[in-house]
Structure formats: C-alpha cells, structure tokens
Design a protein around this nucleic acid. Structure first.
Lengths: 123, 123
DNA sequence: TATTTATTTAAGTATTTGCTTAAATAATAA
DNA sequence: TTATTATTTAAGCAAATACTTAAATAAATA
C-alpha cells in the first residue's frame, strides 16, 4: 500500500503497532461508534441534558434545543440504535434517558465540557 | 417549533435547560468538533498510536493501518486543522504528534478503550 | 366514534465524508 | 541537473449525514 521506501523505518515498531491494534480492534470499533454519536453538537447536548435532567421527552428536547420534533426524534433513534440511550413510555409520552452501558465514559466527556466552560469564562 | 401542547411540560425546567446550554454553548461546539474527529475509526487509531509512540510519519501510519498514503494524509490534515495534532519536519519526513491542548480528554478515551479491551477478553 | 396529541417514519435533498487516482511540492541523492 | 523519495493537494465519486415536509402510528380525550 505504502509508496515510501524508508531507510529508517523501524519494522519492529511497525509490527508492534499492528499487533496492538489487532488485539484492540473491537474496542476501537465500539468506541469510534459511540464517539461519532457524541461528535454531533445536537446529540452531545441531548446526552448532556439527559445526564442533568435524568430523562426528557422528544418534545421537551425540541423546545430546549430549538429544533424540529422529527430532527430530534431521528437523533434519538440513532443513539438508541447505538445503545447509549433507552426509552420509557408513559401514556403518550416517551421519556429518554442515558443507558448505564457507556455512562462512565460519557460522564468523563461532560466533566471536560465543564472544564472548557470554566476556561472560557476567564478568556 | 414544537408541535406538542403539553399539559405537564415544566416551563421552569425547560428554561433552566436553555440557560445551561447558552452558558456552555462554546464548549459544546469545541467538544463536539473534537469528538467528531475522534469518532472515526481510522482517526481514533491514529490518535491512539500517536499517544503510544509519541510521534509517527504518514508513511508509518499507512503501513500500520493498511490505508493509502493520501487517505492517511487527509485524516492528518483534518486533525491538524482541528488543533489536536501537530507536525514536525525532519529532512523529508514529517512527524505528527498529539498537541497538549486536548490531550487530557483524549487520554480519558484511551483509558476507556483499554477497559473495553479487558472486557472483551472475558466475553 | 371522531379528534387531538406525542411521536415516529418516509421521502426528498443539500451538504459532508472518506476514499480513489493523478498531479504537484519539496527535500535528498545520484 | 535529473531522479528519487515523502508528502500534500486536487478532482471525482459513492455513501453517509442531517435536515425538511408530509404521512403514518398510537394513545388519550371529547
């Protein structure tokens, strides 16, 4: 694949890297999937709000984020399919909340958002 | 925007949520940008490898990941533009490394990848 | 029963993404 | 100088994204 014919390439290093990735292959697929979900501003805000408020319905989220109901609904479906949120039905209303699955990781991200916020206040 | 006319919507809660988001607006934009970069399997692996190996050139990355040089180069440019990696030139070779900027957050992600790996080993 | 309400789904579309191949740069070596 | 090497850039393209509007579900109410 590579077009480079390096004198100083370290074949041992290259192979060690390949092995490391192979052993961790599944984790990278899972992780990049979750990060891709969180890597959209609307979805990141939804996740943050679900952590703060415990649960919210599509209608509330639409109000809060100023986005259409179908747009919200489609983001929610994506995250539900991705296994990071869950739904609970109460009469006509569907309440979404964070799934425990990747909660620890998401909380790490929220903590970092708070740090960024603090930094911005002093700039 | 919303089509729902809820009897039980809590306008105080809705407004508190809106305010929280407004105060944190910039942080969400920054954060989702970084997560979008990490939310691609190839790029996540590149970031991980740069953490492990300190620095690597496009050619090494091409070998390790089994991807074409231009594909790697374009991912690197995207992450450089996004401010999460930096370049150093030595003769003909360009060495890329993680920028200190969001390193703390990225390390949190790498730690979580290791945890996922451990879990997979016992499934 | 018919209507209203909350939500989802479907279809359409403009934009973005992530690769490909080919060409352009820039530094080194012959 | 010319050729080689490492990398970037450009152009093209198929697929994925993220919205839109309109229609379909499903539960509650009149």
């Amino acid at each position: 694949m590579s077009a480079c014919i390096r004198l100083y390439a370290d074949p041992v290093q290259i192979n060690q890297c390949k092995e490391k990735l192979e052993q961790t292959q599944e984790a990278f697929a899972t992780m990049s999937g979750v990060l891709a979900l969180a890597g959209n501003e609307a979805r990141l805000k939804i996740l943050y709000l679900l952590e703060e408020e415990k649960e919210l319905c599509p209608c509330d989220l639409s109000d809060i984020l100023g986005m259409s109901i179908p747009a919200i609904s489609q983001h929610l479906r994506k995250m539900k399919d991705g296994g990071i949120i869950q739904a609970r039905k109460e009469r006509q209303t569907i309440f979404y909340s964070l799934k425990p699955e990747h909660l620890k990781m998401l909380r790490g991200l929220f903590k970092y958002i708070q740090q960024l916020k603090q930094q911005n206040q002093f700039v």
